[in-house]
C-alpha cells in the first residue's frame, strides 16, 4: 500500500493512501479508549523528535503516539544541543541517525527541510511542520476528525479562515480535502493570500460572511501576532472585526457545521471564546485524534521496506 518510508507532505499522497492512514487511525483510536493504552508493534524502534521551532501539542502528541506503540521516544532539544554550538542541520541529522534512530520527526522553520533530510538519511522522516510548506499529520488528524463527524469528506464544503500565506496547516488541508473530494474555500485579507492559490482548486474569499455561508466545516487558523508588526494588518482588533469567527457569523454556516482550530488559539483574535468553547467546536477532539493519526503514521511507515 504505502511506498514511501517518509511522510513529507499530503501533496504526494494518493486518496487511497490518505484513506488507508485514516482507517488505520480508527483502530488506534479504539486502543486509546482502553484502560491500558499501549500496544507492542514498535517495540525496539526509536523515534527522535527533532524540533527546531517551539511546539507543545505536536511534539507531545508524537511522543505519546510513539510510546503507545511501545517505541523508545527521545526528544532532541535544540536549545540545549550542539546546534547552539554551531552544528549544521546536516550534521545534527546524521548524528541522530548514527545514534540508531528509526524515525526522525522534524519541525523546522525552513520549507523543504524534511525533503533535504530525506535525501541525506536512510531512516524514515516524518514532517511535523516545515516553514509555510506542509504539516501533514495536522491535516490527517483534521480529516480524521471531519470524517468521524460527517461520515465522508466527498461533497463537503470546508471554509478555512486565516493566514493562508504563512500556514502549512492550510496547505496540507487544501491538498487533503481536495484529494478526498471536498470543496475548499479560503478566506483572508489579500495581504495574507498566497500567489496563485486558486490554482489548487480552492475558491478565494475576502469576506468571511460570504466564505462561511452554508459551510459544513469551518477551520480557523492561528494568526501569528507578528503579522501586524510586518504590516500585513493594521491591527489585531481590525482583524477580529473583519475575520474573527463569532457566534453571529457561525449562524451563516450549516446548522450542524463543526468548528476546528489547529491550536494554539488566540481567543479574541481569530476566534471568539463563545465559539471556541461552544457546542459546535471539535477543537479538543482534534487533539485526541492527533495521537491516533500519528500512531497510524508511525505504524504504517515502520512497515515500509527500506
Amino acid at each position: 500500500m504505502f511506498k514511501s518510508k517518509n511522510l513529507l507532505g499530503i501533496k504526494d499522497l494518493t486518496p487511497n493512501e490518505i484513506n488507508f492512514i485514516l482507517d488505520t487511525a480508527s483502530g488506534f483510536k479504539d486502543v486509546l479508549a482502553r484502560d491500558i493504552k499501549k500496544v507492542p508493534p514498535l517495540r525496539g524502534k526509536t523515534v527522535v523528535n527533532l524540533f527546531f521551532e517551539p511546539s507543545t501539542r505536536t511534539r507531545t502528541s508524537f511522543t505519546l503516539a510513539g510510546k503507545r506503540l511501545s517505541a523508545d521516544v527521545v526528544n532532541f532539544s535544540v536549545n540545549t544541543s550542539s546546534v547552539v554550538k554551531g552544528e549544521t542541520l546536516k550534521d545534527t541529522a546524521l548524528t541522530i541517525q548514527s545514534l540508531g534512530a528509526d524515525f526522525i520527526v522534524i519541525r523546522h522553520a525552513s520549507s523543504g527541510v524534511p525533503h533535504f533530510l530525506s535525501k541525506i538519511l536512510n531512516i524514515s522522516i516524518i514532517n511535523a511542520g516545515d516553514g509555510a510548506n506542509e504539516h501533514p499529520t495536522q491535516a490527517l488528524l483534521d480529516l480524521f476528525t471531519i470524517r468521524s463527524h460527517k461520515k465522508k469528506i466527498n461533497g463537503l464544503t470546508v471554509a478555512i479562515i486565516g493566514d493562508i500565506a504563512h500556514s502549512r496547516v492550510a496547505k496540507s488541508n487544501i491538498y487533503g480535502l481536495t484529494k478526498l473530494g471536498a470543496k475548499v474555500r479560503v478566506i483572508c485579507p489579500p495581504t495574507l493570500m498566497p500567489a496563485g492559490i486558486d490554482k489548487l482548486g480552492v475558491d478565494v474569499f475576502h469576506s468571511i460572511e460570504q466564505g462561511i455561508k452554508n459551510a459544513d466545516v469551518i477551520m480557523t487558523l492561528r494568526l501569528q501576532l507578528e503579522r501586524q508588526v510586518k504590516g500585513f494588518l493594521p491591527s489585531l482588533e481590525e482583524y477580529f472585526k473583519l475575520y474573527g469567527l463569532t457566534a453571529e457569523r457561525l449562524k451563516l454556516a450549516r446548522d450542524n457545521a463543526i468548528v476546528m482550530h489547529p491550536g494554539p488559539m488566540n481567543r479574541g483574535v481569530e476566534i471568539d471564546s463563545e465559539v471556541a468553547d461552544g457546542p459546535q467546536s471539535v477543537i479538543l477532539e482534534q487533539v485526541t485524534n492527533g495521537i491516533a493519526v500519528r500512531m497510524a503514521v508511525l505504524y504504517i511507515l515502520a512497515g515500509v521496506r527500506r
Binding site: 520549507s111 523543504g112 516545515d130 509555510a132 502549512r168 500567489a195 492559490i197
Partner: peptide, 13 residues
C-alpha cells in the same frame, strides 16, 4: 520567484 510555485513550496517569494 513569487508565484504559484513558491506557494506550493512554501518558500518566501
Amino acid at each position: 520567484n513569487e508565484g504559484f510555485v513558491s506557494t506550493i513550496l512554501g518558500l518566501k517569494g
